[in-house]
Simulated scan of single mutants.
Amino acid sequence: MMLSIKRFFAGLFLLGCIGSTLKAQISPPGLGDANNAFWGAFGVKRQLDSLGKKQALSYVAIGRKSSPDDHNLFSKQAIIVLNHEVYHSFAPHQQYSYAISYRRQPQYESTAPYDKENTEQEFRIYGRYAYTFDLGKKWKLKNTVRQEFRKFFDAGFHQVEENFQFRTRIKSQLTYNLSPKNNQKLALSAEALFSISHLNEPDPQWSSFGYREMRIAAYYMFTIPNSPFTVDVGYMDDLIRDSRSIHHGGVHYLAADLIWNIPYRKR
């Protein structure tokens, strides 16, 4: 059954590569090898112009994850994220955005009892381009290409094994307008990640560019009645190439975010 579902999402991804702008959920980041994980975020989305073509989304988020030998998704602290992104719908069906992000992620030993070993900091800048197809009255297909630059430090801002990374992400998301009541939607997505890194250790060198992960997700989205808040609740399966978790179906995420929508106000 799970294999059939994964094949369906892989097919969705390939369909998307031949071609939305949705008020997207705050998708979980990769939290490394684990059995299960939790991702929760609170964001503030502001309309920047009267036409609704420009928006800014700022959010703070946390991640938790299990140890390799248990399934408690709240077992260990996994990440803290601060993110700010600006979107511009510059033409019909087309949108670009740019962002800056800070992430703080504990690193754990690979053997029991999996104690905390160190802390890694990441500064990230990225840009993305998205194109949306309207597939009838209720369906939308959004395809996104995102390019990232990631720079890594330890807790004291010293160099770590990986110096910096260029990463390319290609994502397709199919959205169904479930009901106009509370603006309910269902979204299915698949995202492939490719990267190349410059390493500090054992010697300064470049890794090979290649495929690293596939992230498959399903979300339910709705607006809280009589409020400016939207809620997104979902599941993500992170299939990490050559990881221990991929042998038991990937890392399984429970994800939720709350977004406060602020309309445009003329100054």
Rank of each mutant, 00 (worst) to 15 (best):
N35M: 08
L73H: 04
F152D: 05
R212G: 11
L3V: 07
L254R: 02
F194Q: 03
V44M: 09
I262L: 15
A155D: 15
L254T: 03
S110E: 14
A217M: 10
E122Y: 01
A41M: 01
R46T: 09
L15Q: 04
S101Y: 08
G16H: 06
F229A: 01
W206T: 09
F42E: 06
Q95C: 11
H247S: 14
L186Q: 01
L51S: 15
K151Q: 15
F8L: 15
A61C: 04
F9L: 15
F74K: 12
H71D: 14
I216E: 01
S227E: 07
G40Q: 03
E191W: 07
L22E: 05
D154G: 08
S27L: 03
I5S: 02
T168D: 04
R124E: 09
R124P: 02
T168Q: 07
R124W: 08
N200Q: 14
S67V: 12
G43C: 07
A56C: 01
A10C: 07
F164W: 15
I18D: 00
Y98Q: 03
A41H: 06
Q121D: 14
T111C: 01
K65H: 11
A112Y: 13
A112N: 14
F149W: 12
D70P: 00
R169C: 07
T175R: 13
N35Q: 15
I5W: 03
